Amino acid sequence: MGDNIYELEIYLPRAGTYDVDLHVYKDGFEELLTKQITIAQDDPDYLDNMTLVWSDEFDGTEINTDYWTFETGSGGWGNNELQNYTNGDNAEIADGKLIITVRKENEFKVAGSYTSTRMISKGKKEFTYGRMEVRAKLPSGTGMWPAIWMLGGNISTEGWPACGEIDIMEYVGYQPDVVHATVHTTSGSGANGDGSSKALETAEEAFHVYGLIWDAKEMIFYIDSPENVTHTYAPFNKTASNWPFDLSQFFILNVAVGGNWGGVQGVDNTIFPQSMAVDYVRVYQSN
């Protein structure tokens, strides 16, 4: 290939051993060069070096349908939930925030007795790796089950839980002031998901940032600051069953009522209406 010398620089912010493949093509010549690189320690500034690649600040007058789709219907959503998700009737933008409002439609405590909203970014805004942050204030009362989470973009072909699920934040109203972060995969899902709980006394009264740092090595969940870690998920031997997380995931924002977890202690019909307020959704990625 002559005497030309080329230099290639790559940035690997996290400690670990990486197999780097370089495909070289020139004048009909093709060669694959493979090199194993070991990084001794994390770049202490790698979070600061991330760039904001997408956000919804909810600063407009309407929900941006270039970003979000309303999933609609009742029927339990696989968890015996009681809400009917409407086509935007229970969501609005007010004072620079997304407001998802849950309303009681009747006293019967059956499927369809309540209306709510479930918004997804599937097929519109999907991401692989990055730092995800959602600033939100949560509803209160027995029967509430708000969630800020992600699902694999391939769920239509792979199904759940093979597509992977990342619960950045879940909350059940009968257990106030405790937030949960959980990962669901084929190797562990539902009640057997890999997660942790964290006391947060002002979850219902104040806005908090619910964050996720996700790369090829691990997932780190936190509240308000990366220093306040709530859960870490990092299987030592990654397989398709425990790590389907090298593919894109989309966001889901919703508030459920009742269900297998949210309804363990029933639903208090005196609490409605209830709302989850979301200040922003932001995604940062390495350059």
Rank of each mutant, 00 (worst) to 15 (best):
residue 225 S to R: 08
residue 115 T to V: 14
residue 233 Y to E: 05
residue 206 A to R: 07
residue 152 G to L: 05
residue 241 S to G: 02
residue 67 Y to T: 10
residue 109 K to R: 13
residue 17 T to H: 09
residue 231 H to N: 13
residue 13 P to L: 15
residue 36 Q to Y: 07
residue 67 Y to Q: 07
residue 9 E to H: 12
residue 19 D to H: 07
residue 145 W to K: 03
residue 89 D to N: 08
residue 5 I to A: 11
residue 77 W to P: 00
residue 18 Y to V: 15
residue 198 K to S: 11
residue 266 G to P: 01
residue 92 E to N: 04
residue 225 S to P: 00
residue 210 Y to P: 01
residue 80 N to S: 14
residue 24 V to Q: 03
residue 57 E to P: 00
residue 179 V to L: 09
residue 204 E to I: 14
residue 167 D to E: 11
residue 168 I to R: 03
residue 17 T to R: 15
residue 93 I to S: 02
residue 149 W to V: 09
residue 56 D to Y: 11
residue 275 S to I: 06
residue 76 G to P: 00
residue 7 E to V: 12
residue 55 S to A: 04
residue 270 T to G: 01
residue 122 K to T: 04
residue 273 P to N: 06
residue 118 R to S: 04
residue 49 N to A: 05
residue 48 D to Q: 14
residue 273 P to L: 07
residue 270 T to S: 13
residue 217 K to Y: 12
residue 65 T to V: 11
residue 44 P to R: 13
residue 274 Q to V: 15
residue 136 A to N: 03
residue 270 T to C: 01
residue 103 R to T: 09
residue 4 N to Y: 12
residue 99 I to N: 06
residue 234 A to C: 02
residue 161 P to Y: 14
residue 147 A to N: 04
residue 158 E to M: 13
residue 281 V to N: 03
residue 153 G to L: 09
residue 120 I to L: 04
residue 283 V to C: 05
residue 235 P to I: 11
residue 141 G to F: 08
residue 276 M to N: 02
residue 22 L to A: 12
residue 4 N to M: 10
residue 173 G to Q: 12
residue 254 N to M: 07
residue 127 F to K: 04
residue 108 F to M: 07
residue 158 E to W: 12
residue 32 L to Y: 06
residue 223 I to T: 15
residue 134 V to G: 01
residue 2 G to T: 06
residue 14 R to D: 13
residue 24 V to G: 01
residue 180 H to S: 10
residue 199 A to P: 00
residue 108 F to R: 08
residue 248 S to T: 15
residue 198 K to Q: 11
residue 131 R to Q: 13
residue 29 F to R: 14
residue 41 Q to W: 01
residue 177 D to H: 14
residue 73 G to H: 09
residue 75 G to R: 07
residue 162 A to C: 02
residue 262 G to K: 14
residue 213 I to G: 00
residue 8 L to K: 15
residue 75 G to M: 09
residue 205 E to V: 04
residue 262 G to N: 10
residue 181 A to M: 11
residue 146 P to R: 14
residue 166 I to P: 01
residue 137 K to Y: 05
residue 130 G to M: 13
residue 13 P to C: 15
residue 222 Y to A: 01
residue 183 V to F: 04
residue 32 L to S: 06
